[in-house]
Write a protein that binds this DNA or RNA. Structure first.
Lengths: 257, 257
DNA sequence: AGAGCCTCTTCCGCCGGGCGGAAGCCGATG
DNA sequence: CATCGGCTTCCGCCCGGCGGAAGAGGCTCT
């Protein structure tokens, strides 16, 4: 039998990108993967997947579940927790989020921008409150959420231009899909220091958000409360603003301790 | 001028291990690093560090702070949040931790085992409560903490053997450093379903912990309350046990929703 | 139980991705 | 203006790593 194997590597792809492709294969939808799934999702041959995954396993970036499936390892979580959004912002935010939760007993969320999306960094949810679509680590569009509008309203105008330049995907009949209407909502947000999403992301859920700023006044995050649309979310606006201002003052008052 | 450069690569080190070394360079102590620091901590030449870091930057595993330093990126945090400890355990635990906090207004902590240490997965801390040594993402020794004792008491005996085989480092005058005394404490923990640490980790702070189990009865985490030693932590034992039992029932009742 | 199938794991020879010394760049400092 | 330290780019050599193939193990179906 002739050994006709050898090297048929896919050109133009770095080893680093292969490793990152393995990590990127995991998602909220699919947090546990078999080797074959991992290979398919990362676009790598099974043999390569196996070898690289073994190295990640060895280091602790990945782990194997009881049934042998791959899952994200604690070591990776530990390092991920060093990101500024988690380390500085989240720890400072927790007390204010608790206060907000105790006062309203509704879902309280903390979000930052990543790319052209909102990324939820933390969340406190009561058992009685609305079921929100997105969990911690989840993403949502900027234009359809209250936190997203706050981010758009208080970031550089280039961000709005970028978002408005693309299509504004519709989530519900109430989603804003016209750039001009969105621009008007952002003006109102700048004026009132709060933004709303009234069933624009999912029917039966509305939210109010307020800006969180760091010492120099630039926006770092948005804090929001989600409630059933039947409730008067507008009545929660002052509570959210107050908590967001308190958190901003805390961030300004101390470096990161 | 003769070009005498070329390749002098360090043998026996995979590209993957280099990438992981870069990630491992970040720590709670040093969450922001310059290129030179990153190179020194990872043990890679500056040129290699620069090239690999650029690729990680491009993908979002790393980010640059305003001053140009490297820090862990949101993308990595996002993937780290997919670890079972975060995704299943933490989200299920939050309501119970809140209840515990509202009842006691002391620090509430959730911890899992990683290797021969305790890893804190989540924490709720009031402003009035004791300042704890360890933050979310932080580690602590198994033998000197209440959560660690719970983990030792309800895991396979091999774990205790492994820990007792090594030295038990002393943190305070009250730290248990004799395997026989530790074994006795673990027997008491198994009997009472709670474990204590009475100023064994840091003076002025004591804690009570209880086991969190999954459907099949195996231990998955430990829940604890930290209080000033002057307070009677023993009085908090039932509260912690109740919350831990509630959380265990929740984990048994549903897969991961 | 034997055949067929699928997934996981191991092996190894060929080769191009990636290594890192050197040089160039840039801002800070004396 | 010279010096210095850290950051970035360049590029030719070479060995780490790629992945097809084969082997092992487990499951279903007939």
């Amino acid at each position: 039998m002739v050994r006709m194997s050898g090297n048929a590597r896919e050109s133009g792809r770095s080893t680093t990108s292969r490793v990152l492709a393995l990590l990127a294969a995991f998602s909220r939808r699919r947090p546990e993967l078999t080797l074959t799934e991992l290979a398919a999702l990362s676009g790598l041959p099974p043999a390569t997947t196996h070898r690289l995954a073994a190295e990640l396993l060895d280091w602790g970036a990945l782990e194997r579940a009881a049934d042998g499936r791959f899952q994200v390892g604690l070591r990776l979580w530990e390092i991920g927790a060093l990101t500024p959004a988690h380390r500085e912002l989240r720890s400072a935010a927790i007390p204010f989020m608790e206060d907000l939760y105790e006062a309203t007993h509704e879902n309280v969320q903390l979000a930052v921008r990543d790319g052209l999306e909102v990324l939820f960094v933390d969340k406190i949810s009561g058992d009685s409150s609305v079921v929100t679509l997105t969990d911690v680590g989840g993403r949502a569009p900027l234009h359809a959420t209250a936190v997203g509008k706050i981010i758009l309203a208080f970031s550089e105008p280039e961000l709005f231009a970028e978002v408005a330049g693309r299509e504004l995907p519709r989530s519900t009949p109430h989603t804003i899909t016209l750039p001009s209407v969105l621009a008007q909502a952002l003006r109102a947000a700048r004026r009132d220091q709060v933004a709303y999403s009234l069933e624009e992301r999912s029917l039966g859920a509305s939210s109010v958000a307020a800006p969180v700023r760091q010492a120099d006044g630039t926006l770092v995050a948005a804090l929001s409360v989600v409630a059933r649309s039947s409730k008067n979310v507008r009545g929660l606006a002052f509570a959210v603003r107050t908590a967001a201002l308190g958190l901003s003052r805390r961030l300004a008052g101390q470096g990161s301790a």
